[in-house]
Design a protein around this nucleic acid. Structure first.
Lengths: 192, 192
DNA sequence: GAAGATTGACGGCTCAATCTTG
DNA sequence: CAAGATTGAGCCGTCAATCTTC
């Protein structure tokens, strides 16, 4: 609470400004919210820069990387949906665009003909690998500015928080159906 | 490193899946990236739910709250731009929509007639207060699941990281011009 | 009837071009 | 010519039907 406390970030000044008028608010929680949101935004921005230089759109990443780590580089559209944090319509469109560029193939599941199975083409696998490398670069260039000890600590603390929010993950299928709030909230992630 | 280590979150399983093929990646950094991104997403989703129930759009928040904490509830469009993490065109549209609903007023700056000054109307002030309360509720309902000690620790760690990324904030004007990467990146925040 | 995927209308953002003022 | 704001085109996401298959 005293180390580099003299240097204030935006969260500090914003909460101070706010608290002149507002009462009964947990300042630490509010600052945490701001910082989380803000760093996540920088992360996305940096990634967009990195990808954009090679003509890759950010939304490709979510789909391609999910497929890349799936067994046989294949996932149903529903699984992709839960992996992607967007709505069903968006997934349909993404798959269509990826198919048009020949990164993926679309087949009807013979076992349950309501489902469509999406598979990475060889070219798609190549592209997914490339994207993963770029993403890693972006992450490290921003997050690597913290010292290793702090990274470990944050990572651990945030895991607990994430577990409290969305519950534990399932090893076999990270994309199984498990709504967070009962009403909405698909689950999964956009990592590589 | 041992407490609740048995329970894995999505970041754990995803990085494990990935590391079968990839080498030389700092796993902790990667997990941190995933968790940051993911929690920020949940935060936004929760806020959207909260606001949506009262017919409030998420983008209103960024503009209205920035104005609310400004001296005289007034800011130039440029300052609003830097506060909002979106592009100039988006700001113009947002202001136009808010003006149509009579939450804000738009005047030309007499000192520099290129600029336009945006001011909260009395009704706008009322609405901003309401939005702030909703936002706080959303934050606490998600982030409050962590124990207070962890919240403090995360908040502090993330401040250091944020400072490393965007540098210290200026007390007087949190929205002054200070591009992060020289090429793009407006600055400011979307807090209340 | 429920689940999975698709479609189209609509909203909001980005980007590049433009206009105005300094 | 530079800075601030505005405009319009294009892209992508959400949401609410709709269709097919179980």
């Amino acid at each position: 609470m005293v180390t580099t406390e003299a240097v204030r970030d935006r969260a500090d000044v914003l909460v101070d400004l706010m608290c002149r008028e507002t009462t009964g608010i947990d300042a630490a929680t509010k600052k945490l919210g701001i910082r989380l949101q803000r760093i996540a935004h920088h992360l996305e921005r940096e990634l967009r820069r990195e990808l954009g230089a090679e003509g890759i759109e950010p939304w490709e990443l979510e789909v391609l990387l999910a497929l890349h780590r799936a067994p046989g580089h294949r996932l149903s559209a529903g699984a992709l949906l839960r992996a992607s944090q967007v709505t069903a319509g968006a997934i349909t469109n993404r798959i269509a665009r990826l198919e048009a560029q020949d990164w993926v193939r679309r087949d009807v599941d013979p076992a349950d003909r309501r489902q469509v199975l999406v598979t990475l083409t060889p070219a798609g696998v190549e592209r997914a690998r490339h994207i993963l490398a770029l993403k890693t670069t972006a992450e490290e260039s921003l997050l690597g500015r913290a010292d290793p000890e702090a990274i470990e600590r944050m990572s651990r603390d945030l895991r607990e928080l994430l577990l409290a929010i969305e519950g534990p993950a399932v090893d076999q299928d990270p994309y199984e159906k498990c709504p967070v709030h009962a009403d909405a909230a698909p689950s999964g992630t956009g990592l590589g």
